[in-house]
Design a protein around this nucleic acid. Structure first.
Lengths: 143, 143
DNA sequence: GGCAGTCACTATCATTTTGCAAGTGACCCG
DNA sequence: CGGGTCACTTGCAAAATGATAGTGACTGCC
């Protein structure tokens, strides 16, 4: 798994941490305010043992953190860390793609609170502001 | 798996098609020009039966297409469809995230051919141009 | 104090998916 | 005809996933 500089690929690095369906859906639900175990379980329809494992993995990977929000009764919730929050835009981009290519029926969407308009996520190069794919790029490999 | 409008979630729709590690890495490699079976297999270090299954799944999902590029000997390569190409910016965003949060050591990167600068992928709202996460958003669910 | 109920899990086991290793068939080249 | 490459398939072991049942901490009610 390392010919052609694969070990140096940042995509691979990213996927090491969140490279599965449930993890991403958990992050999405936490963002929606479903931060407790039972909320996540019923919302996702996931088996409890699987959910436990995903939550540990995401915690281990530093995307979420278990935090006590009530002493009596002692209860915890799972909140996004900075790394977890930084991952959300990617979910929005995946959502935009899913809407475009698998979008039968009515789907939920995000609105910009200030403008009231539907958010249209696009990945751009921060340097040029141009959407990725509209300008020729070249890969550079480390020594 | 459908309380709280989960069936209407576009993220879920997207992940139905590419929600696993190998699929994404295959797309990335095809973009890099590794379009043939043996190239993909050796680059990724993936077992041949698994690669076959991923390639069928991605073909089925409409992200890649098998195309004959030589009659004698008869040889095919796997090329990205429009849907597949549209997914690449997401991989770049995942890469940027991976670099930021799991970026030990030297990693490969993309350069803008015209400016020579390192590409910095960011997900923005096409309406406002503002990076996702910098403005308050609200979810809207269908009826 | 005893009992039902909720929340957040763990344990057990069947099923599914993944992965390794070996083999197969089409073709080409000397 | 024989060796070599490419693109797979097959068979089987190992790992991950998923369904179901159970457990322990606690709370609120009578």
């Amino acid at each position: 798994m390392d010919k052609n500089n694969l070990g140096t690929c940042p995509v691979d690095r990213g996927l090491m941490r969140v490279g599965d369906r449930w993890s991403m859906l958990v992050l999405r639900d936490i963002e929606r305010g479903l931060t407790r175990y039972e909320q996540l379980r019923t919302s996702l329809g996931i088996a409890p043992n699987i959910l436990s494992r995903r939550l540990s993995a995401l915690t281990e990977a530093g995307l979420i953190a278990k935090t006590r929000y009530s002493q009596r009764p002692p209860r915890d919730e799972y909140l996004l860390t900075d790394a977890g929050r930084d991952f959300l835009p990617i979910l929005m981009a995946i959502g935009a793609w899913g809407r475009k290519y698998n979008g039968g029926g009515a789907l939920s969407q995000h609105l910009d609170v200030a403008t009231g308009e539907v958010v249209r996520p696009v990945v751009v190069d921060a340097n040029t502001g141009a959407p990725i794919g509209t300008r020729p790029l070249r890969m550079e490999y480390p020594d």
